[in-house]
């Protein structure tokens, strides 16, 4: 029995038309369409393209949620083992559509998805972490090179084989770290690299240093007397007993706790869930991490209008940047909805 594949393409490759037809809604056709022919040849007998979903690029871009849901429904009917999208080469909207569809397939159908794009296609930056995108030339002239590489990768994924490095497999680096056992101890590898660097011989670092992005600062608070100040912390302060079971390390959640009429964080009522520092001091007096007592004093004195009645907490210890980012985005939207003016974020 061969694997079942559903192919996703745009209106242009389906022969419906160019830009003037880019607003056609998704439709499904049995079997192969357009570039599916070449794909079918490259897949051989091991996999079969059972259906092709076609959608206009503009339609997808202006109805992302509806289009994605509809396309998934169409695909599900064909019980696919994998989905291939494109290749989209350097077509921006087509690339983003392929990316959106493949990400949804991986997340919702739990099956592999592969697309092909030119590295500068905006779909690459947006979706490369979610699934494999094979590197292609910038135009359809590169179809002959793109299709066999995509077919090869999808078959490997279907067979559950180990996927090699970007250079070995021809996909665009996803920026995802994977563990593996090397032949040598890490200490020996370090001394090898050290020796090479000292001698001026070539070496390849195992981890290129990260570059962090920047956000422009927001304007200052002009009218502090009427400001609502909120407290957020990565120091894990929470009600005693850690009712939400925030993990001591690698937190999967944040906590939201009401401090209406709480004037001081006492040892009886608050503690820290953080596993990365000596918790003795925070457990004794959580104000040492989250200065509720002082802010209440200043609120009374009228330095600012109000201390927000909820604080937000998570544990920074060993928690992935992506998780922290997700928590903060959600926290920020709640704070904005509650009319908070500015935030004091404390870290341990």
């Amino acid at each position: 029995m061969s694997y079942r594949i559903v192919h996703y393409i745009n209106q242009f490759y389906a022969g419906i038309g160019g830009e003037e037809k880019a607003d056609v809604a998704p439709e499904v056709r049995e079997g192969v369409v357009g570039p599916g022919m070449a794909l079918k040849a490259a897949l051989g007998s091991e996999a079969e393209i059972v259906a092709t979903v076609v959608c206009g690029d503009s339609y997808f871009a202006s109805n992302i949620e509806k289009a994605t849901a509809g396309i998934l429904e169409m695909m599900k009917k064909y019980k696919p083992d994998a989905v291939i999208a494109g290749p989209a080469f350097n077509a921006g909207r087509y690339g983003t559509a392929c990316g959106g569809v493949c990400e949804a397939v991986v997340k919702n159908l739990n099956i592999p998805a592969v697309s092909g794009m030119f590295p500068e296609n905006p779909g690459v930056e947006m979706y490369k972490k979610s699934f494999y995108i094979v590197e292609t030339p910038d135009s359809a002239a590169g179809m002959r090179a793109a299709v066999p590489a995509m077919a090869k990768l999808v078959l490997k994924l279907l067979r559950g084989e180990k996927i090699g490095t970007p250079a070995e497999e021809g996909y665009i680096e996803r920026g995802i770290r994977k563990n593996k056992f090397y032949d040598k101890l890490a200490a020996e590898r370090a001394v090898d690299m050290f020796t090479a660097k000292l001698k001026g011989e070539p070496f390849v670092t195992e981890y290129p240093m990260p570059v962090f992005d920047r956000v422009a600062p927001n304007p200052a608070v002009k009218d502090m007397k009427n400001a609502v100040i909120a407290l957020v912390t990565s120091g894990g302060i929470c009600p005693k007993g850690n009712p939400d079971h925030i993990e001591a390390s690698s937190a999967s959640k944040f906590g939201e706790y009401d401090i209406t009429s709480v004037m001081d964080l006492t040892a009886e009522a608050y503690c820290t869930a953080h596993g990365g520092y000596d918790a003795t001091y925070a457990d004794q007096d959580a104000d040492r991490v989250l200065p509720v007592d002082v802010l209440r004093d200043m609120e009374k004195e009228g330095v600012f209008k109000k201390l927000h009645n909820k604080f937000y907490t998570t544990v920074g210890n060993g928690t992935a940047v992506a998780s922290a980012k997700k928590f903060a985005t959600e926290i920020a939207s709640r704070l904005k909805a509650d009319g908070v003016t500015a935030v004091i974020l404390t870290s341990t």
Binding site: R177, V191, K197, M209, F212, A322
Partner: peptide, 28 residues
């Protein structure tokens, strides 16, 4: 040459270190 480990998230998609500098070009 630096010898460290990584906290890149369960999916491996986050930055692995909390701090960084361009001089750290040899890292195991």
């Amino acid at each position: 040459t630096l010898l460290t480990d990584e906290y890149a998230g369960q999916d491996g998609a986050s930055q692995s270190l909390a701090d960084s500098c361009p001089e750290g070009d040899a890292c195991v």
